[in-house]
Design a protein around this nucleic acid. Structure first.
Lengths: 136, 136
DNA sequence: TTAATTCTGACTAAAAAGGTAGGAATTCAA
DNA sequence: TTGAATTCCTACCTTTTTAGTCAGAATTAA
Protein backbone atom coordinates (compact mmCIF):
# COMPACT_ATOMS: atom_id res chain seq x y z
CA UNK A 1 0.00 0.00 0.00
CA UNK A 2 1.46 3.26 -1.09
CA UNK A 3 0.35 6.26 0.83
CA UNK A 4 1.39 9.42 -0.92
CA UNK A 5 0.12 12.89 -1.57
CA UNK A 6 -1.45 11.72 -4.76
CA UNK A 7 -3.72 9.33 -2.90
CA UNK A 8 -4.41 11.96 -0.32
CA UNK A 9 -5.28 14.52 -2.94
CA UNK A 10 -7.56 12.04 -4.63
CA UNK A 11 -9.44 11.42 -1.42
CA UNK A 12 -9.64 15.13 -0.68
CA UNK A 13 -10.96 15.89 -4.13
CA UNK A 14 -13.52 13.12 -3.96
CA UNK A 15 -14.64 14.33 -0.56
CA UNK A 16 -15.02 17.77 -2.06
CA UNK A 17 -17.18 16.34 -4.82
CA UNK A 18 -19.27 14.45 -2.33
CA UNK A 19 -19.77 17.54 -0.21
CA UNK A 20 -20.94 19.53 -3.22
CA UNK A 21 -22.85 16.74 -4.85
CA UNK A 22 -26.05 18.77 -5.02
CA UNK A 23 -24.54 21.58 -7.11
CA UNK A 24 -24.20 19.76 -10.39
CA UNK A 25 -20.83 19.26 -12.06
CA UNK A 26 -17.93 20.69 -10.11
CA UNK A 27 -15.00 22.02 -12.11
CA UNK A 28 -11.45 21.16 -11.23
CA UNK A 29 -10.73 24.86 -10.98
CA UNK A 30 -13.05 25.06 -8.00
CA UNK A 31 -11.55 22.05 -6.34
CA UNK A 32 -8.09 23.36 -7.06
CA UNK A 33 -8.87 26.55 -5.18
CA UNK A 34 -10.78 24.99 -2.32
CA UNK A 35 -8.33 22.21 -1.66
CA UNK A 36 -5.22 24.07 -2.72
CA UNK A 37 -4.04 21.51 -5.25
CA UNK A 38 -2.58 22.46 -8.60
CA UNK A 39 -5.09 22.28 -11.43
CA UNK A 40 -2.81 20.39 -13.79
CA UNK A 41 -2.13 17.80 -11.14
CA UNK A 42 -5.81 17.39 -10.43
CA UNK A 43 -6.39 16.76 -14.11
CA UNK A 44 -4.02 13.83 -14.00
CA UNK A 45 -5.66 12.44 -10.92
CA UNK A 46 -9.17 12.77 -12.32
CA UNK A 47 -8.16 10.98 -15.46
CA UNK A 48 -7.52 7.93 -13.34
CA UNK A 49 -10.59 8.39 -11.21
CA UNK A 50 -12.61 8.52 -14.37
CA UNK A 51 -10.98 5.45 -15.87
CA UNK A 52 -11.86 3.64 -12.70
CA UNK A 53 -15.47 4.69 -12.95
CA UNK A 54 -15.51 6.71 -9.80
CA UNK A 55 -16.51 9.98 -11.44
CA UNK A 56 -18.31 11.13 -14.55
CA UNK A 57 -17.25 14.17 -16.51
CA UNK A 58 -19.02 16.72 -18.65
CA UNK A 59 -16.86 18.81 -20.89
CA UNK A 60 -17.07 22.37 -22.03
CA UNK A 61 -18.10 25.49 -20.24
CA UNK A 62 -19.91 24.82 -16.98
CA UNK A 63 -18.62 21.32 -17.18
CA UNK A 64 -16.94 19.41 -14.44
CA UNK A 65 -17.16 16.19 -12.53
CA UNK A 66 -19.75 14.39 -10.46
CA UNK A 67 -19.58 11.19 -8.51
CA UNK A 68 -20.47 8.16 -10.56
CA UNK A 69 -22.02 6.47 -7.53
CA UNK A 70 -23.47 7.67 -4.23
CA UNK A 71 -20.81 8.54 -1.68
CA UNK A 72 -22.11 5.76 0.50
CA UNK A 73 -21.06 3.21 -2.08
CA UNK A 74 -17.52 4.42 -2.66
CA UNK A 75 -14.87 2.90 -0.45
CA UNK A 76 -11.64 4.71 0.17
CA UNK A 77 -9.82 1.67 -1.11
CA UNK A 78 -11.45 2.27 -4.48
CA UNK A 79 -9.99 5.74 -4.60
CA UNK A 80 -6.52 4.86 -3.43
CA UNK A 81 -6.30 1.94 -5.81
CA UNK A 82 -7.47 4.09 -8.69
CA UNK A 83 -4.62 6.56 -8.44
CA UNK A 84 -1.86 4.28 -7.15
CA UNK A 85 -1.95 1.30 -9.44
CA UNK A 86 0.38 -0.55 -7.17
CA UNK A 87 -1.02 -1.60 -3.88
CA UNK A 88 1.51 -3.90 -2.30
CA UNK A 89 3.56 -3.05 0.76
CA UNK A 90 6.16 -5.36 -0.40
CA UNK A 91 7.83 -6.60 -3.50
CA UNK A 92 8.65 -10.15 -2.61
CA UNK A 93 7.26 -11.29 -5.89
CA UNK A 94 8.98 -8.75 -8.05
CA UNK A 95 12.61 -9.07 -6.97
CA UNK A 96 13.15 -12.73 -7.43
CA UNK A 97 16.85 -12.39 -6.70
CA UNK A 98 16.09 -11.10 -3.27
CA UNK A 99 15.51 -14.62 -2.10
CA UNK A 100 12.06 -14.16 -0.76
CA UNK A 101 9.86 -15.81 -3.26
CA UNK A 102 11.73 -19.01 -3.83
CA UNK A 103 10.11 -22.05 -2.37
CA UNK A 104 12.78 -22.85 0.13
CA UNK A 105 13.72 -19.70 1.90
CA UNK A 106 10.57 -17.66 2.11
CA UNK A 107 11.76 -14.68 4.02
CA UNK A 108 11.15 -14.71 7.73
CA UNK A 109 8.92 -11.74 7.66
CA UNK A 110 6.92 -12.63 4.60
CA UNK A 111 3.76 -13.50 6.47
CA UNK A 112 4.13 -10.42 8.55
CA UNK A 113 3.90 -8.06 5.60
CA UNK A 114 1.03 -10.00 4.21
CA UNK A 115 -0.80 -9.44 7.45
CA UNK A 116 0.09 -5.79 7.44
CA UNK A 117 -1.27 -5.36 3.95
CA UNK A 118 -4.52 -6.87 5.07
CA UNK A 119 -4.57 -4.70 8.13
CA UNK A 120 -4.15 -1.50 6.15
CA UNK A 121 -6.52 -2.56 3.42
CA UNK A 122 -9.18 -3.38 5.95
CA UNK A 123 -9.05 0.23 7.05
CA UNK A 124 -9.62 1.56 3.57
CA UNK A 125 -12.24 -1.06 2.88
CA UNK A 126 -14.21 -0.02 5.89
CA UNK A 127 -14.29 3.72 5.42
CA UNK A 128 -16.69 5.11 2.85
CA UNK A 129 -16.48 8.44 1.15
CA UNK A 130 -19.68 9.42 2.89
CA UNK A 131 -17.98 9.05 6.24
CA UNK A 132 -15.76 11.99 5.39
CA UNK A 133 -18.53 14.43 4.64
CA UNK A 134 -20.08 14.27 8.08
CA UNK A 135 -18.65 15.64 11.30
CA UNK A 136 -15.37 17.20 10.38
CA UNK B 1 4.45 5.57 8.49
CA UNK B 2 6.94 4.73 5.82
CA UNK B 3 7.07 1.12 4.82
CA UNK B 4 10.11 0.41 2.74
CA UNK B 5 12.69 -2.25 2.21
CA UNK B 6 14.88 -0.62 4.79
CA UNK B 7 12.31 -1.22 7.48
CA UNK B 8 11.72 -4.69 6.20
CA UNK B 9 15.41 -5.48 6.21
CA UNK B 10 15.70 -4.17 9.72
CA UNK B 11 12.92 -6.43 10.90
CA UNK B 12 14.40 -9.40 9.04
CA UNK B 13 17.82 -8.81 10.53
CA UNK B 14 16.43 -8.43 14.01
CA UNK B 15 14.43 -11.61 13.58
CA UNK B 16 17.63 -13.32 12.50
CA UNK B 17 19.37 -12.10 15.63
CA UNK B 18 16.50 -13.27 17.76
CA UNK B 19 16.53 -16.70 16.16
CA UNK B 20 20.25 -17.08 16.79
CA UNK B 21 20.28 -15.41 20.15
CA UNK B 22 21.93 -18.39 21.83
CA UNK B 23 25.02 -18.33 19.63
CA UNK B 24 26.67 -15.21 20.98
CA UNK B 25 27.36 -12.21 18.80
CA UNK B 26 26.22 -12.60 15.22
CA UNK B 27 28.25 -10.87 12.54
CA UNK B 28 26.63 -8.85 9.83
CA UNK B 29 28.41 -11.04 7.31
CA UNK B 30 26.33 -13.99 8.48
CA UNK B 31 23.11 -12.06 8.37
CA UNK B 32 24.02 -10.68 5.00
CA UNK B 33 24.35 -14.19 3.62
CA UNK B 34 21.35 -15.70 5.36
CA UNK B 35 18.98 -12.87 4.58
CA UNK B 36 20.52 -11.86 1.28
CA UNK B 37 21.03 -8.23 2.16
CA UNK B 38 24.13 -6.29 1.18
CA UNK B 39 26.65 -6.05 3.99
CA UNK B 40 27.27 -2.34 3.54
CA UNK B 41 23.58 -1.66 3.70
CA UNK B 42 23.22 -3.73 6.85
CA UNK B 43 25.98 -1.70 8.44
CA UNK B 44 23.98 1.44 7.92
CA UNK B 45 20.87 -0.13 9.32
CA UNK B 46 22.62 -1.49 12.37
CA UNK B 47 24.13 1.86 13.11
CA UNK B 48 20.63 3.12 13.66
CA UNK B 49 19.47 0.06 15.54
CA UNK B 50 22.38 0.53 17.86
CA UNK B 51 21.75 4.22 18.38
CA UNK B 52 18.22 3.29 19.30
CA UNK B 53 19.43 0.79 21.86
CA UNK B 54 17.94 -2.21 20.18
CA UNK B 55 21.21 -4.06 19.73
CA UNK B 56 24.62 -4.18 21.35
CA UNK B 57 27.80 -4.59 19.36
CA UNK B 58 31.16 -6.13 20.02
CA UNK B 59 33.93 -5.18 17.66
CA UNK B 60 36.90 -7.03 16.30
CA UNK B 61 37.26 -10.61 15.18
CA UNK B 62 34.38 -12.82 16.34
CA UNK B 63 32.47 -9.69 17.04
CA UNK B 64 28.94 -8.98 16.01
CA UNK B 65 25.62 -7.95 17.39
CA UNK B 66 23.23 -9.22 20.00
CA UNK B 67 19.82 -8.01 21.04
CA UNK B 68 19.93 -5.44 23.76
CA UNK B 69 16.68 -6.73 25.23
CA UNK B 70 14.77 -10.03 25.10
CA UNK B 71 12.85 -10.51 21.87
CA UNK B 72 9.65 -10.52 23.87
CA UNK B 73 10.27 -6.92 24.85
CA UNK B 74 11.01 -5.50 21.42
CA UNK B 75 8.04 -4.21 19.50
CA UNK B 76 8.16 -3.98 15.75
CA UNK B 77 7.32 -0.33 16.04
CA UNK B 78 10.62 0.16 17.84
CA UNK B 79 12.48 -1.30 14.91
CA UNK B 80 10.61 0.55 12.21
CA UNK B 81 10.96 3.83 14.00
CA UNK B 82 14.65 3.28 14.52
CA UNK B 83 15.49 3.02 10.86
CA UNK B 84 12.87 5.36 9.40
CA UNK B 85 13.15 8.51 11.43
CA UNK B 86 9.97 9.79 9.92
CA UNK B 87 6.84 8.01 10.93
CA UNK B 88 4.02 10.14 9.71
CA UNK B 89 1.68 9.14 6.93
CA UNK B 90 1.08 12.69 6.31
CA UNK B 91 2.84 15.98 6.18
CA UNK B 92 0.12 18.37 7.15
CA UNK B 93 2.41 19.97 9.64
CA UNK B 94 5.41 20.29 7.42
CA UNK B 95 3.95 21.96 4.35
CA UNK B 96 2.33 24.90 5.94
CA UNK B 97 1.54 26.44 2.58
CA UNK B 98 -0.59 23.48 1.67
CA UNK B 99 -3.40 24.92 3.70
CA UNK B 100 -3.93 22.02 5.97
CA UNK B 101 -2.53 23.08 9.25
CA UNK B 102 -3.99 26.50 9.52
CA UNK B 103 -6.66 26.85 12.10
CA UNK B 104 -9.49 27.66 9.77
CA UNK B 105 -9.33 25.22 6.92
CA UNK B 106 -8.08 22.02 8.40
CA UNK B 107 -8.17 19.77 5.40
CA UNK B 108 -11.21 17.59 5.02
CA UNK B 109 -9.29 14.41 5.37
CA UNK B 110 -7.01 15.42 8.20
CA UNK B 111 -8.73 13.31 10.81
CA UNK B 112 -8.77 10.42 8.43
CA UNK B 113 -5.01 10.27 8.11
CA UNK B 114 -4.61 10.66 11.80
CA UNK B 115 -6.80 7.63 12.27
CA UNK B 116 -4.88 5.71 9.67
CA UNK B 117 -1.62 6.45 11.40
CA UNK B 118 -3.04 5.10 14.61
CA UNK B 119 -4.37 2.06 12.85
CA UNK B 120 -1.02 1.18 11.33
CA UNK B 121 0.91 1.98 14.44
CA UNK B 122 -1.35 -0.23 16.49
CA UNK B 123 -0.29 -3.12 14.31
CA UNK B 124 3.38 -2.56 14.91
CA UNK B 125 2.80 -1.87 18.55
CA UNK B 126 1.11 -5.19 19.00
CA UNK B 127 3.57 -7.46 17.28
CA UNK B 128 6.74 -8.37 19.14
CA UNK B 129 9.98 -9.57 17.67
CA UNK B 130 9.44 -12.84 19.45
CA UNK B 131 6.28 -13.43 17.47
CA UNK B 132 8.34 -13.72 14.31
CA UNK B 133 10.64 -16.45 15.53
CA UNK B 134 7.88 -18.96 16.11
CA UNK B 135 5.76 -20.67 13.47
CA UNK B 136 6.97 -19.47 10.15
C1' DT C 1 -17.47 32.77 -31.68
C1' DT C 2 -15.47 32.81 -27.36
C1' DA C 3 -14.55 31.44 -22.87
C1' DA C 4 -14.58 27.63 -19.89
C1' DT C 5 -13.66 23.38 -19.37
C1' DT C 6 -12.04 18.42 -19.92
C1' DC C 7 -8.62 15.53 -22.20
C1' DT C 8 -3.90 13.93 -23.29
C1' DG C 9 0.91 13.18 -23.60
C1' DA C 10 5.40 14.69 -22.92
C1' DC C 11 8.54 16.74 -20.09
C1' DT C 12 11.06 18.11 -15.68
C1' DA C 13 12.83 18.87 -10.96
C1' DA C 14 13.32 17.28 -6.50
C1' DA C 15 13.27 13.81 -3.20
C1' DA C 16 13.68 9.27 -1.58
C1' DA C 17 15.19 4.59 -1.91
C1' DG C 18 18.57 1.60 -2.13
C1' DG C 19 22.49 1.08 -2.24
C1' DT C 20 28.53 1.44 -2.94
C1' DA C 21 33.18 2.79 -1.74
C1' DG C 22 36.82 3.61 1.11
C1' DG C 23 38.97 3.66 4.96
C1' DA C 24 39.62 4.07 10.22
C1' DA C 25 39.28 1.72 14.67
C1' DT C 26 39.08 -2.31 17.40
C1' DT C 27 39.84 -6.94 18.89
C1' DC C 28 40.74 -11.80 18.73
C1' DA C 29 43.79 -15.55 17.67
C1' DA C 30 47.79 -17.55 15.79
C1' DT D 1 52.92 -8.71 17.25
C1' DT D 2 50.86 -9.18 13.12
C1' DG D 3 46.92 -10.17 10.31
C1' DA D 4 42.27 -11.17 9.68
C1' DA D 5 37.75 -10.22 11.03
C1' DT D 6 34.83 -7.22 12.32
C1' DT D 7 32.35 -2.80 13.63
C1' DC D 8 32.23 2.13 12.78
C1' DC D 9 31.70 6.25 9.97
C1' DT D 10 31.16 9.42 6.16
C1' DA D 11 30.66 10.48 1.70
C1' DC D 12 29.07 9.45 -2.59
C1' DC D 13 26.26 7.39 -6.34
C1' DT D 14 22.34 5.46 -9.22
C1' DT D 15 17.71 4.53 -10.03
C1' DT D 16 13.02 5.10 -9.16
C1' DT D 17 9.21 7.60 -7.65
C1' DT D 18 6.82 11.65 -6.60
C1' DA D 19 4.94 15.69 -7.63
C1' DG D 20 4.33 18.26 -10.36
C1' DT D 21 4.57 21.70 -15.14
C1' DC D 22 3.63 22.73 -19.93
C1' DA D 23 1.46 22.97 -24.26
C1' DG D 24 -2.02 22.23 -26.82
C1' DA D 25 -6.22 19.68 -28.69
C1' DA D 26 -11.23 18.70 -28.18
C1' DT D 27 -15.65 19.90 -26.52
C1' DT D 28 -19.53 22.55 -25.17
C1' DA D 29 -22.52 26.25 -23.05
C1' DA D 30 -23.72 30.87 -23.48
Amino acid sequence: MKLTNKGRYAVMAMADLATNADKGPISLTEISIRQNISLAYLEQIFLKLKNNKLVKSSRGANGGYILEKPASEIKLSNIIHAVNEEVKTLNCKKNSKKGCNNKFTKCITHNLWDQLDQHINSFFETVKLQDLTKNN
